[in-house]
């Protein structure tokens, strides 16, 4: 009887404990190069393309996750042995309206940018790929979506490195 009770308690405890998923090993790099945003065939105003790029540089630098953050084309990046590169490609873009958002919040006027963020190593091997979306739903100008997007990508990098 005691043995049965013991087995029952053990099984109950195992069921109650959260399933332990194997932790994904963190990536390591001392420097990151941020490439220009690839827009492909998506129709997106130039200011959004460059705002995403500039805000990514700003946010990743502010996160202090990497010793060095290089811009696209920076010649000094080539000498860093453990350099990783962030590629961002736009999948979809919906331009809303600040006025509509303020008059009928949440219902209409949202601006949304969907991208695929990919991190590659110096050998070109993909280390990380994730779909990320940046939005501005109520207050703020349309370009605010680029700030939201940069924050989300930075959060992803901080969690992965």
């Amino acid at each position: 009887m005691k043995i049965s009770l013991g087995i029952f308690l053990t099984l109950s405890a195992a069921a109650l404990l959260p399933a332990q998923t194997p932790a994904t090993p963190k990536l390591h790099a001392s420097a990151i190069q941020i490439e220009l945003v690839d827009v492909g065939d998506v129709s997106i105003p130039a200011e959004f393309r460059y705002a995403i790029y500039e805000r990514l540089i700003e946010q990743v630098r502010d996160s202090r996750k990497f010793e060095k953050v290089f811009r696209s084309g920076d010649k000094a990046a080539a000498s860093v042995p453990d350099l990783v590169t962030l590629h961002t490609s736009v999948e979809a873009f919906t331009e809303g309206s600040e006025m509509k958002r303020e008059l009928a919040p949440v219902v209409v006027g949202s601006t949304k940018v969907d991208v695929t963020a990919q991190v590659t190593g110096k050998d070109g091997k993909t280390l990380l790929t994730e779909k990320v979306a940046g939005k501005v739903r109520i207050f703020g100008e349309n370009l605010g979506a680029t700030n939201d997007l940069a924050k989300r990508i930075t959060k992803l990098l901080v969690a992965s490195f």
């Binding site: 220009l36 105003p45 130039a46 200011e47 393309r49 460059y50 705002a51 790029y53 500039e54 290089f70 811009r71 696209s72 084309g73 920076d74 010649k75 000094a76 370009l143």
Partner: peptide, 18 residues
């Protein structure tokens, strides 16, 4: 009007000024 100016710094890095 929104003016976007793309230029290259001395180190070769691309900058986008809005």
């Amino acid at each position: 009007d929104i003016l976007t100016v793309v230029y290259r710094g001395a180190d070769g890095g691309v900058h986008g000024v809005i």
